[in-house]
Amino acid sequence: MSAVSTVDRPVGGATAAGGPVRRLASWLHRHGWVRLTALLSAPMAWLVVAYLGSLAVLLISSLWTVNSFTGQLVREPTLDNFRTIFAEPVYRNVAVRSVAVAVAVTIIDALIALPMAFFMAKVASPRVRAWLVIAILTPLWASYLVKAYSWRVMLANGGPVDWLLGGAGNGPGYGLTATILVLAYLWLPYMILPIYAGLDRLPNSLMEASADLGGRGGRTFSSIVLPMIVPSVIAGSIFTFSLSLGDYITVQIVGGKTQLIGNLVYANIGAANNLPFAAALATIPVFIMIGYLVAVRRSGALDEL
């Protein structure tokens, strides 16, 4: 290592070698782990303190309770909140409903995204492809609320959706169906993009080989394309699933009287001022997502993110 500085000396001159910056640089060069620590400590601190730390706070506060009259926090650990969640059927129903909505949204998005992404990656000319990518990304620039409220107007009694289906009252109206529809619309780009990326990496020669061996379109898709893009689909599903599971605004706007986990969390923070119970409810999606991610990790889909 000292050889480096000897070689440098004639070039940089005595001043450069003696300069504090230079000395620090060579010291860091010799101590690789310090370099790494300095580089990563800020992002690691962010991850640990702000991200995992807040999760820990969530878990701890879910063990507290609130004085129902004055709204003051009672900082005595108890499992009462979780007991209520497990004892009252309503929370189980809402949790199941939320997961069902997330699953439905994910399936709908996957069904729409697969042909769309395939067209973009394998059929469209590069020029058209560029425009399609732009077309898919553009809606992401519009505000979430604007899109949700537009759907409220579209789904209104006698609105455009009713009109398309042949008259007032024929549309789904506000409710669970409308919620799934709007969420599927909102999160579609997050499904298309990973699948598109996966298909883009799929060599065309594989499909040609399949055709040479007599495979028809359907067979090629099910035996060659699908197995290779499953990780991409799962990557997309992580987005659509987790985004739907946590949503509470869309369902408030178009969901009619439907409640999802997000609404219960929101109601307990905003209306009931019961933060500990809200925290306890918020752990439900956290655990569902952890379970999902652990299952997904085995598929290798996390490499596609």
């Binding site: 129902s68 309503v90 009287k257």
Partner: peptide, 30 residues
């Protein structure tokens, strides 16, 4: 605000307080 001590002056029963009302409201909406 509903409290445990019945506001109508009854002392032989306990009334439902606001936290019970809040939890019931979630149940009602299902």
């Amino acid at each position: 605000t509903p409290i445990e001590q019945c506001l109508d002056g009854r002392t032989d029963v306990k009334c439902k307080d606001y936290s019970a009302w809040t939890q019931a409201w979630t149940t009602i909406k299902g």
